[in-house]
Design a protein around this nucleic acid. Structure first.
Lengths: 197, 197
DNA sequence: TTCGTGAGTAAGTATCACTTACCATGGCAT
DNA sequence: ATGCCATGGTAAGTGATACTTACTCACGAA
């Protein structure tokens, strides 16, 4: 008997909460199904009623976190008309979200990428949308001459996304504090004004 | 009986080669010790004579690949005196190395980061040195006014490293082709001259 | 000759992800 | 009322896999 996804029973919620909680402490592979179930006070078998396998659980937890992340970004950038301001805000908000949602960022930046089936998941769909939003803003910026006409939008996106992700890695891995304002300003300054004297 | 690391017996080499070869085909966790041993024509037990565990094998293979990577970079940048040229060369050479050494980049960018014990490994020591080299060039560049005086060297390094890594991810994960010349030039252009019109 | 050491093997074992078969309850059509 | 079946949940496996233990063999030095 498989779960159809029409309801959201307490067992399912408890499993996701338990797993989320464990992800804050250790990496995916060293979390056992026995631990997840024990922590959630259900039996191991129930996990497989609601999730295809352990990875599917990971992806669905990520998907949940991504919803909040995405809503925050989409909400904020609608105020700004200026493309550069929009991009600056995306950099800042991404850093902020990564910083106060360690589990989300740990899963997204460290755990899911090495397994190909992630890219079929609904969570990856959200990554793509976030990524597409950035590209569209850049293309608009080039069109109305806010950004240099020769800029390759894909490369610019690579630099922005790469900088954001790299900035978070130290914090995620070593638990270092990150001055979000300073770093996001610094990244934007380099990306838009250049580092050359 | 543990291995002291003084010699490099054929079994050890065969195991590392076998593992390297398997890493080109699938991800770390779906490679089994039985496969590694079978492929290398030794018994499973021998793996644990030379490597503490499967992860240790991963780190030592990475370490080997990193040696080549590092040598190439250090060699090339000694020609150039100009700091910006040095950084441009690092960007290009990194992309190039990542591109024609898929196993190396897959391990470094996707597989090792989620496990804390990597950061005690000798391979991580090499990552740190590579990273330090970049920082030193940036600091020199700021001192002799090639780069803007206000630049935070750590942030600039984040942008450069992040851009490089992000540029490679698509290639590693989906096997997409990457125009190294175009992308490395694009990254350098944005980072040094800025994207703002 | 003996002894110690490095290279390699064979046969486990504990643990883990995942499966199968089962139980209980409540709403609902007959 | 009654039968029924979908949904939420459990209990007890099972095969695979990472890692361990105890062993053999070859050989160079004392």
């Amino acid at each position: 008997m498989k779960h159809k996804g029409k309801t959201n029973p307490p067992g399912r919620i408890k499993i996701m909460k338990s797993f989320s909680h464990l992800m804050a402490q250790k990496d995916f592979h060293s979390i056992t199904t026995a631990e997840i179930a024990g922590n959630a006070k259900v039996t191991e078998g129930l996990i497989y009623k609601y999730f295809r396998d352990k990875k599917d659980l990971l992806y669905q937890v990520l998907d949940n976190h991504f919803l909040v992340f995405q809503a925050k970004i989409e909400n904020r950038i609608t105020d700004k008309k200026n493309c550069i301001e929009q991009l600056e805000l995306i950099i800042f908000t991404s850093l902020e979200s990564y910083a106060d949602n360690r589990i989300f960022s740990k899963i997204l930046l460290l755990e899911v990428r090495n397994s190909l089936d992630f890219f079929d998941s609904s969570a990856y769909g959200r990554v793509q949308q976030y990524s597409r939003t950035i590209l569209e803003i850049i293309e608009k910026g080039i069109k109305n001459n806010e950004l240099k006409p020769g800029t390759d939008p894909y490369t610019l996106r690579k630099v922005i996304l790469g900088a954001i992700e790299h900035a978070c890695l130290g914090e995620i891995i070593f638990g270092k504090e990150l001055d979000i304002h300073a770093v996001s300003f610094g990244i934007a300054d380099i990306v838009f004004n250049g580092a050359k004297a």
